[in-house]
Design a protein around this nucleic acid. Sequence first.
DNA 1: CTGAAAGCGCTTACAG
DNA 2: CTGAAAGCGCTTACAG
Lengths: 331, 331
Amino acid sequence: MDQVAAAAGVSRATVSRVINNAASVAPGIRDAVQRAIASTGYVPNVAARSLVTRRSNSVALVISEPDRPDDHSFLNRIFTDPYFGRVTAGATGALRPHDVHLVVVPTDSADHHQVIRYLRQGHVDGVLLICSSEHDPLPGQVHALGIPAVLSSRPAAPLPVSHVDLDQRLGARLAAEHLIARGCRRLATISGPLDIPAGSERLEAFRTAAGADAPAVIGDFTRAGGEAAAHRLLDDHPDLDGLFVASDLMAEGALRAVQDRGRRVPDDVAVVGFDDSSPALECRPQLTTIRQPVEEMAAEMAQLLVAHIDEPGRATRSVIFQPTLVLRASA
Amino acid sequence: MDQVAAAAGVSRATVSRVINNAASVAPGIRDAVQRAIASTGYVPNVAARSLVTRRSNSVALVISEPDRPDDHSFLNRIFTDPYFGRVTAGATGALRPHDVHLVVVPTDSADHHQVIRYLRQGHVDGVLLICSSEHDPLPGQVHALGIPAVLSSRPAAPLPVSHVDLDQRLGARLAAEHLIARGCRRLATISGPLDIPAGSERLEAFRTAAGADAPAVIGDFTRAGGEAAAHRLLDDHPDLDGLFVASDLMAEGALRAVQDRGRRVPDDVAVVGFDDSSPALECRPQLTTIRQPVEEMAAEMAQLLVAHIDEPGRATRSVIFQPTLVLRASA
DNA sequence: CTGAAAGCGCTTACAG
DNA sequence: CTGAAAGCGCTTACAG
């Protein structure tokens, strides 16, 4: 930096001002400094800057799961799950124009303190938080830290934190109504884990529309889990003719189970998925599903986070997206 | 930090020493400082530390593609591709014990300079570099920067940079020999892009084993690309009975194409994939494939990078993994 | 084994 | 509009 200052014949303060394009620099001086920067190839040191600005220009995407039996497979599942992939893509894209980078931090309850430590060290200016359980204490802990955060769903305990969510109930209702409208009479569902809204609310709303006694098996949002759940359902209810599965990944497994039992989709059993992520197109038949604009939702989270970082006192906000029914071949 | 020093009745220097557990601190003092740290809940500021140590304790995973027609779909593809997911998982897992974090940086040739700038700013201590073209100038540029780097395949131009790679030729040979051994007589292949070893070498080695005139279509490592390529191949060579596809993702598409034409797998056409990633298990029939230990390879890259960061002059090294044939139902 | 002091490379009131 | 100076919060020779 001193080199640049010397080359341009100004002080370091002035160099700093043109780099951060502060309002008040004489055009002539500004040009001289810019030339000096170009010729020296100077790039400001980010640690020194962070030290005084208290900004890192990075945010964390924390993906928190309650327990993690095995480190290896946990990481594999997270980074291979199309849902998290879409979240990462959406957030990365929205952050790029702000020149802020994303650090993905997978965690489970056993190392929450690691994450807290990471955040307290000032590595990042804020955090996008995705929890797979309502009882996860992390949102509360992060909020207590006073670091800007945006959640991917409504917090269980009321917390003054912005969040982005999907109208889960509407999604499930759309699915149920479609199955009913196409003539299905014995509906059942494979839900997600019940300790998150994406599990409990989709199940409740489905039963509200399909009948309170509609059979349900709780899945785990994995393909294998969906397959097993479908077999269980078909064992107990061999005559079911309409199935709502709370994620496309599980629906892919369920489709397989139905077909392996020699039942045709959609003629014998109609299947509706949820998400509209890549597995929906990979299945045969392709999945009729409830579309969730995951990338846009993640982008919105990122935008909200940036806003909270830029304006600390900013009012908290909740943004709810509406799902839509996407008709394909499975129902 | 001053609080901690005051509470423990020592100087900041001593506090710093116990935090970085420098050898020489009297046990009694050490304990007192640790108690003081615990009671104050002190966490060192990472920017201040980086400024003096010149270490960020982060590394970048740069995924470079030659061109990117559309930002949105590029990010989506990257973060949704099982191969990159496995790389991320492997690297994250290996880095965690070293307490270093991973920043994923997707890029194309249009914003190489952004990446260079990012690296020069000192955001990270080193970079894991994955290029999808041999002609990508990024490895050379990164090396010129003098920042530690590890590549995911042998650099085209000889470059004194460590890299991890797979014995691509062996993999293709394994595939060809298996198809021949099971009785296939009219072999063909769907290769990857020819400007990377994973494309060109697999193709060459396949033809060495299967016959120099074995039909080949060049794919793009996407599912849709594999499907289209298989149709093309079957149009031109309706009698082929053995197909080697250079990635599982493409193989999944190819399987579909073969089956959509009413040909049975493996009876009419045997199909061998490459990677042994999740799509191999999702296909019906499940894929016989060439296993590539992607997570381990990424972990090795991470370990090499850490070693280079810790020991700047360290000799460069290339680590080659051996692929293996995994027998399942498709061939 | 420990402390006083310098210094890492920036930004930003404060004067002028 | 610009500069001199202080300061961000650490670490690390250098003495002792």
